Measured scan of single mutants.
Amino acid sequence: MAASAHGSVWGPLRLGIPGLCCRRPPLGLYARMRRLPGPEVSGRSVAAASGPGAWGTDHYCLELLRKRDYEGYLCSLLLPAESRSSVFALRAFNVELAQVKDSVSEKTIGLMRMQFWKKTVEDIYCDNPPHQPVAIELWKAVKRHNLTKRWLMKIVDEREKNLDDKAYRNIKELENYAENTQSSLLYLTLEILGIKDLHADHAASHIGKAQGIVTCLRATPYHGSRRKVFLPMDICMLHGVSQEDFLRRNQDKNVRDVIYDIASQAHLHLKHARSFHKTVPVKAFPAFLQTVSLEDFLKKIQRVDFDIFHPSLQQKNTLLPLYLYIQSWRKTY
C-alpha cells in the first residue's frame, strides 16, 4: 500500500487533545456564526451592495467568503475584532481572482478581468477605488493598515499566469505559485494584525505553500471532471502515471504514490512551519489557523491510503469550527 511504503514521513496525529474535556472553552465561534445575517447573495444585490440601503460592502465580502471560501471565513471569524473586516476584504479579493479561471470560457475574457483587478489595485493606492464592493472594502483595508501593494499585485499576476490550462511542470513550480498567492495572502494578513517579524514571515511562507499544494490536491477530482489535470508532471512521470490515469480515476498503487509524494511535500512544509513556532510572536498565530484544515485533509487522505478520489475527501468536517476554536484558544498553530 502507498501509505505503508512511505509511512515514515507522517508524524503522530495532533488533533487529539488529552485532558481537553476537563476545561470548557468559552463560547465564541458558534455564537458569532449565529449572529451573522444570512440572506442569499443575488446578482441584483451584488450590483447594489455598495449603494445606500443595501447590506453594505462589508456584508457582501463576508457573504462571498462564506459561500466560496468557507474555511477562510471560519478562520477570519476568530481574528481580533479590529482586524476582521480587513481580512474579510482581503480574502474576498482572493476569491474574486480565484473564480475568474473557472467562470470564463475564453482566456481573453479572463485576461480582461485580471486587467480590471490590476487597475483596481492601482486605483486603490491612488484613493480612487471603483464602485465595486470588494474594491471598496480592500481600499478601506489598505488605508487602515498601510498594506504593501507588492503582495496584492503578486496575487493578481500569479492568478493571471495561471489562466493557462497547463499542469505544473514540477513541484517547485506549484510551490512558486502557492508562494505568490497563498503566502502573499498571509503576509498581508500579518500586516493587518500589525506583525512585522521575520520568523512570522518564514512560517507564512511555508504554510502558504502547504495551502497551495493541498488546494491543488483537493481540486483534482473537480478538475478531472472537466478533463483537466494540474498535478506536477515530474512526480507523475517518476511513477509512470499519465494524465489519462487521473481522468479515468485510476486507483492503482502508482497513482496513489503520486498523491503521496505531493501530500508529503505539504506535510513537510507544515511540519517545518511549526518547528520554530517558539520564535514566532503569539500575536501572529491567528493568521495561521488554516493549519487546522490543512492537517485535517492530510490526515483524511492518509486514512484512505492516498486515494484522491475517495468520497470521504469531499465531505465537510462538521467539527472544523470546534477544532479551529480550540486551536485559537490554545494559542498555537
Rank of each mutant, 00 (worst) to 15 (best):
T120L: 06
I326R: 09
K271H: 11
E63L: 09
V258P: 02
P130A: 11
L77H: 03
E82Y: 15
K283Y: 09
V255Q: 08
K67S: 08
V95Y: 06
V87I: 14
H145T: 04
K107L: 12
A219E: 04
K278T: 11
K300Q: 14
E122K: 12
K300I: 05
N250M: 12
T332P: 03
C236N: 03
Y323W: 14
S312P: 00
D123N: 10
E63H: 13
N170G: 14
H131E: 13
R226H: 14
K228W: 12
K154R: 11
S275I: 06
G110D: 06
S225R: 10
Y70S: 08
V214F: 04
E63W: 11
M114N: 08
R274S: 03
V304S: 09
M233G: 08
S86T: 05
H239M: 02
R84Y: 05
Y73N: 00
H310A: 10
L186H: 04
D69S: 02
S184T: 09
L163T: 07
H269T: 01
L238V: 12
P221V: 12
G72V: 07
I213G: 00
A167E: 15
C75H: 14
Q327W: 07
Q265A: 09
Y323F: 15
A273L: 00
G194P: 00
K253R: 12
D69Q: 00
H223I: 07
M114A: 08
A48H: 15
H272I: 11
I171G: 02
H277T: 11
K119S: 10
T148P: 10
V292N: 06
V280G: 02
G53P: 15
T318P: 12
K101I: 12
R84H: 11
P232D: 01
Y323M: 11
R91A: 05
V104L: 14
E158G: 14
G224Q: 15
R159H: 05
S312L: 11
I124K: 01
E158D: 10
M112S: 14
W151S: 05
K283H: 12
P232H: 06
V134Q: 02
W139R: 04
A287G: 06
Q132A: 12
N170T: 14
I235R: 08
K149R: 08
Y333H: 03
R159K: 05
L111H: 14
V214Q: 02
R113N: 08
N94Q: 07
R84D: 00
A49R: 15
F88I: 14
K149Q: 05
R150H: 07
I326C: 13
C75M: 13
P133G: 07
Y325F: 12
K300G: 08
P221Q: 12
T220G: 05
D201A: 04
A135E: 00
R330D: 04
G224T: 15
A81N: 14
S103W: 12
S183D: 03
A266P: 01
L320M: 10
S242M: 06
R159V: 04
V100I: 15
V142W: 05
H269R: 05
Y60A: 09
H199N: 09
D307G: 00
S293C: 12
H202D: 04
N170Q: 06
G208S: 01
L313C: 08
L90E: 03
T120E: 03
Y325M: 15
P232G: 00
A266L: 01
Q211P: 00
G208W: 02
Y187Q: 04
L231A: 04
S183A: 11
I326F: 15
P130T: 09
I192Y: 01
V87K: 01
L64V: 11
H199A: 09
I136S: 07
Q243L: 05
V214G: 05
F276G: 08
W329Y: 10
R274W: 04
A135C: 10
Q182I: 14
H272V: 08
L289S: 07
E244K: 03
S86N: 06
Q314F: 09
N250I: 13
L238D: 13
S293G: 14
D252G: 14
Q182P: 00
E175N: 03
Y73E: 02
L65V: 11
Q132T: 13
I155W: 03
K299W: 15
R256V: 03
V214I: 10
V241W: 01
C236K: 01
L270D: 00
F276L: 08
I262C: 12
Y333E: 01
H145R: 04
L289F: 09
Y125G: 03
I235Y: 08
K316V: 02
S183E: 02
D305Y: 03
D157P: 00
P281H: 06
F246D: 03
K172N: 13
A47T: 14
E175Q: 05
L320F: 07
R227P: 02
D261E: 10
T57C: 13
F88Y: 10
S293A: 12
L322P: 00
R84K: 10
K118M: 06
G56W: 14
T57S: 14
D234I: 00
C126H: 15
M114W: 05
E179L: 03
I155F: 06
S50E: 04
K300D: 10
Q327P: 00
L90S: 02
V134T: 14
T189W: 02
S105M: 13
N250R: 15
W117F: 07
I235A: 08
M233V: 07
L97I: 15
D307W: 04
P232E: 00
S312A: 14
K196Q: 10
L298Q: 04
L313D: 00
A54H: 13
T181L: 08
C126T: 15
K154F: 04
E244V: 05
F230I: 13
E158A: 12
D197E: 10
T181M: 05
R84F: 04
G208A: 01
N170F: 05
L322H: 05
H206I: 02
T332E: 12
G224D: 06
H267L: 07
D58V: 09
G53S: 08
P133N: 07
S85E: 09
L65N: 09
H269P: 03
E63Y: 13
H131R: 12
V282I: 09
R227T: 09
L79E: 02
L198V: 08
S76C: 12
A210F: 00
T332Y: 14
Q265E: 08
I308M: 06
I195V: 15
I124L: 09
D245W: 05
D165C: 12
V282M: 08
P321W: 03
G194N: 10
A266C: 06
D164H: 14
Y187A: 02
A200V: 04
K300Y: 00
Q99C: 11
D257S: 12
F306S: 00
L313G: 02
K196Y: 07
V258R: 02
L111V: 13
V46Q: 05
K331C: 10
S76A: 12
E106S: 12
Y70L: 09
L74D: 00
D165M: 10
G56V: 15
Q132H: 12
G53D: 08
Q314N: 10
W329K: 11
K331S: 11
D102C: 10
R84A: 07
G51P: 07
R113Q: 11
Y333K: 01
H59W: 09
F246Q: 02
L322K: 01
G51C: 14
V121S: 00
S45Q: 15
Y325Q: 13
L238E: 15
V95T: 13
A167G: 15
D69E: 07
G110W: 07
R330C: 10
S85K: 11
S83V: 14
G72F: 09
Q251F: 13
H145V: 03
K271R: 13
E71N: 11
L238T: 11
L193W: 07
A284W: 02
D261M: 08
K316R: 09
D165R: 07
K107S: 14
P130V: 13
Q211H: 12
R330E: 04
F309T: 07
N250C: 12
C126P: 01
K300H: 11
A287P: 01
G208R: 03
G212Q: 03
T57E: 11
E295Q: 11
H199E: 07
H206A: 05
Q132N: 12
E106N: 11
F309E: 01
K196V: 06
P286W: 11
Y187T: 01
K299G: 09
A141N: 01
W117L: 06
S50W: 06
R226V: 13
Q243F: 04
L217S: 01
R144I: 06
D296Y: 07
